[in-house]
Design a protein around this nucleic acid. Structure first.
Lengths: 95, 95
DNA sequence: TGACGTTATACCAGTTCTGACATATCTTCC
DNA sequence: GGAAGATATGTCAGAACTGGTATAACGTCA
């Protein structure tokens, strides 16, 4: 992290938050799965509420899933994707 | 599930346990990641105890991870794989 | 502007997962 | 058989996740 004369510092978010490569990989995986879920939903012209009904959960949780919220696990994302018919070979590239 | 004259029935484990395709996909994903973890460990000539130390966890949890135990999440498996240097690209070779 | 449909955020009780420890079951030697 | 190293299984308190509910914020159209 490089210090500049004006008092600010220069560096990546990864450096600032002191995230390891493993942390980054995990976060990026989650982000990709979350994006995939939204993509699938939009492609089917469903609202979060409608998708929530099919997944037997709530709209708020769908919103959190799609935003890769801290309180959402990759397990939940994967299971949700599988339940709406996503195939494994479509996903492993995202892992 | 087909019933036989001798009283037994014929059918897959999936049918017997009434698992959905989504359940199956999830279980299979977990199994693949678990196998990958073991493979990586063995390739490096590490014992479960040694790997546990590197992952800052216990030997018993490593054993559970490698066996795809019910009490182990895909999150834990993925994070563990990333922490020992597995790249995301390597994971889609699992299919 | 306000009503309405959609998405985002906050909170919490119940469930599940995690790490740690103890113990049991292999495996491979002698 | 018995010892020693490795792996598997059981249990449990504390942490993290999940679903539900409430509510806030956003977008759009009359």
């Amino acid at each position: 992290m490089k210090k500049l004369k004006n008092g600010w510092v220069q560096g990546s978010a990864q450096e600032f938050l002191e995230l390891s490569d493993a942390d980054m990989a995990y976060i990026e995986t989650k982000r990709a799965l979350a994006a995939c879920l939204r993509e699938q939903r939009v492609k089917r012209h469903l609202t979060q509420t409608e998708l929530a009904t099919r997944l037997e959960t709530s709209q708020s949780r769908v919103a959190k899933m799609e935003s890769g919220d801290r309180t959402v696990s990759i397990d939940l994302l994967l299971q949700s994707l599988y339940r709406i018919g996503t195939k494994r070979r479509q996903l492993f590239a995202l892992l």
